[in-house]
Design a protein around this nucleic acid. Sequence first.
DNA 1: CTGAAAGCGCTTACAG
DNA 2: CTGAAAGCGCTTACAG
Lengths: 350, 350
Amino acid sequence: MKSGTRIGVKDIAKMTNVSIATVDRVLHNRPGVALATEKKIKAIIKKYDYRPNILARTLASRKVIRLAILIPAVSKETTYWQAPLDGIGQAEAEVRQFGVTIEKYFFDLNDKQSFVRQTKRILKSKTDGVLMAPHFEGDAEVFSEQLTEQKIPFVYINSDVPGQNSLSYIGPNLYRSGFLGGQLADFISKETSTCLIVHISKTPDSYYHLLEKEKGFRAYFKDRKKGRILKSDIQRTDYASIKKELTAVLKAQRVDLIFVTNSRVFYVARFLEEAGISNIRLIGFDLIDKNISGLESGRIDFIISQKPREQAYRGVMALYNKLIKGEPVEQQVFMPIDILTKENYRFYEG
Amino acid sequence: MKSGTRIGVKDIAKMTNVSIATVDRVLHNRPGVALATEKKIKAIIKKYDYRPNILARTLASRKVIRLAILIPAVSKETTYWQAPLDGIGQAEAEVRQFGVTIEKYFFDLNDKQSFVRQTKRILKSKTDGVLMAPHFEGDAEVFSEQLTEQKIPFVYINSDVPGQNSLSYIGPNLYRSGFLGGQLADFISKETSTCLIVHISKTPDSYYHLLEKEKGFRAYFKDRKKGRILKSDIQRTDYASIKKELTAVLKAQRVDLIFVTNSRVFYVARFLEEAGISNIRLIGFDLIDKNISGLESGRIDFIISQKPREQAYRGVMALYNKLIKGEPVEQQVFMPIDILTKENYRFYEG
DNA sequence: CTGAAAGCGCTTACAG
DNA sequence: CTGAAAGCGCTTACAG
């Protein structure tokens, strides 16, 4: 045994008078080792705190690990999912040399069936791990159960499905991000101001997320506000409908600040622009291109963002750590809640 | 040659009718290869876009790369440097398996000579790369020149020394962070408010940095403000002196917001607390423990932070990419400028 | 239940 | 200027 440095399989074999093949067997919990031998070897492993050399292991076992990614396609409607895609690319570059390959499956945010179709393809593809955005909760549940049954680890990003035994959830804490929205609103409005919460969404599947943000926002203002908090639920995502609804609301009452619970805040910015309203403050989510324009023009004051790129990056790495390094991974990772303005968004790395 | 997969040295050797030793020679630009042979081999490398297997390379060459880190010691006065230290630890864990070892050298922020002493030790230690916080600009320049002469790559974090040929600078854009400070001040004060810029520093070495932030802050308000912008230069860092100075300033004029250009904003928070002043807004830098208390108590409104942990992490990785992977690294990386409040600092990963 | 041997894709002396 | 061989620390058949 070399002094100072770590021990290897050869050292363990020598110290226990067995071959390295046998050492390898107990290292991987493979059957076919006498209990006494196994105990001896395990004792040495423990005593010297043996850690396998991942480089050598990867090189020798030409095993390739296949990961499947199931996320929404980037669409004209929203470019949000470009960021996670970039994060996956970055992770891929780092883990490729360790024999990890990644297959991407995309679904249409407006088409539940496309999600289901892709889950079936993944199940057929014999994959070792899955990273998914469980957008359609019910279907994601079914899929998760199938994966659990086949002992395929999976991690959620962007939104969580509680109760499933995912390896990890990596994404926002919606309630806290709404709460922060409340604080930001408080910073830029008076105690007596009227705030309007706007949900813009036609899919009931993600509506729950918006409600969580609303809850957080309202919670911040509990016992703190003299002004009113209004709410508007817009169930269509075309500009004409949004315009109509906002026009009606603003005609009925004075509003000082609008809090849009998702990335569609740019519609509201456009509306304010067109209507020539400049005294309403605006806060929304996600640094997509159209929202950057809103920051630039000064229509949008704050964008709250939760590192979409990094969510996906870390999701892949979680799978890698579990599958290749056998390391434990955190069951729940809440991403930082980033505050972006006209003056710092340029440096943002998401 | 295996189809579909990448080629290796063996394939190149076969295709060019030489031994793998010769291929290895040209791969590493080692002398002793006939020009014709070299050309043939290079052509194949290019044609098939050969990429060496880093795992195999690291495993076979038991070469170890030694990195030296030169940063301020964590002191009672400021725990700021704990974060970079953590980042270095994280990077170390990732690159250790690739044969990188890291030696840390600490200097005293109040003792120029301690910096110089450590640079001498590093020079003697035969290191392959250096990561440093060039706090004492003049001495850092001397050191940088010595490193350049010995062809030892070095990267700066936290502050830059222009004109030296560092491999990379990874840190804040001071001017832009001051500019953002202006915008935040604008968000939480009236157009007619009076802002007070406070520098608290006794070392002239870092004073330049504070001035950059001041410049940015003032630039934001150019053509935008009706109120006055005052400035107070406190050249001592004990609380008594700070208290005295602030008392004098606030007696002389009304102030609505204070912008402290470094991490010592907690002193001002303490002063406002003790003086029972609750109508002055407060913005400062760096998420050290004492500033967290200030956020919690509500005395501090915003903390601006520039990922101190990540700066160091990326600094180490830049050296690793250069030295091990031979990849090019970006010459200048400005970190994101993060906005932290009472409601989001808990999720911050710096 | 166990071990000897080949091999992963490189690098490193050493010999010629 | 060039090549054969051993070895890095593991894993993988295969043989017994």
